[in-house]
Computed example of a mutant assay.
Amino acid sequence: MSMPAVGSALEPVRRSIAAAADADAGRSLRAAEERAAATLAHARAEADRTVREARAAGAAEAKALAGGELARRSRQARTVVLSARRERYEEVRRRALRLLQRAGLDPVLRRGIIGALGPDAHIAPAPGGGLVGTAADRTVDCSLGALVEHVMPVVAGQIEEVWT
């Protein structure tokens, strides 16, 4: 079985991972947006309070304080959103690995390795699940970790589309 055939065989798994990632990303995004909106609302309220107090001391000083405080709070909100995105990415990665561990893919992976390396390939279990095949100076890594890493850029792109 060629590597495209392995890719085709894994397409239902990819679709399942992508669907789960989309749903999880949507929920995570909404929660992160709510936290970010609350942080921004709080920042605006604090900035407004700072402006009122500073106006009593002078218009120039008030402008500098409000701008600095709002900028600081905006950075805080951005940090919250980025942290939530990273957490979601890692959670999707962990779930994808668990899904693959339960999928029983070794027969499909074995056929893919033999298709890529030939029938004399040495095939061994990979730590964490999956298989690794070697023949002469070539290696085909079908460990579950490598498969997840291969799929995550696509899934991450789909998650990013939901976030933007």
Rank of each mutant, 00 (worst) to 15 (best):
L144H: 11
G112C: 01
R49D: 15
R52E: 15
R88Y: 01
A146R: 09
A135S: 14
A37L: 10
M3L: 15
G118R: 10
R49P: 07
S83I: 09
A43G: 12
G128V: 02
V162N: 06
S2P: 13
M1I: 06
S83P: 08
G58W: 04
R73T: 06
L29I: 10
V148T: 03
A37M: 06
G68P: 05
L65H: 01
G115Y: 01
R15T: 14
E69C: 09
R72V: 03
Q101D: 07
E46R: 08
L147W: 07
I159T: 04
R111M: 12
G128R: 01
G7N: 12
G129L: 02
S83C: 08
L105R: 04
P153Q: 00
R15I: 09
A64V: 10
A103P: 07
A9D: 03
A54Y: 02
L100E: 10
D22H: 14
D137G: 10
G128I: 03
A64H: 08
E11L: 02
A56L: 09
T39L: 14
R110L: 06
I114A: 13
L109D: 01
A45P: 06
R93S: 05
T39N: 10
A146Q: 01
P107Y: 00
A37P: 05
H42L: 13
S2M: 11
A135H: 14
I114Y: 08
P119K: 15
L131A: 07
R78N: 04
R72Y: 05
V92H: 05
L147T: 09
L10M: 01
S143Y: 00
V148L: 04
I123W: 00
G133I: 10
V132H: 05
E87I: 06
A156K: 11
G58Q: 01
A77D: 02
G157A: 06
D137M: 09
V151H: 13
T79R: 14
R73Y: 06
Q76K: 11
P107H: 00
L131Q: 06
A9R: 01
P4D: 12
I123G: 10
A23D: 13
S143W: 01
H122D: 15
E160R: 02
I114H: 11
A59F: 07
L29E: 14
H150I: 08
V132D: 01
M3I: 15
A135E: 13
A54P: 11
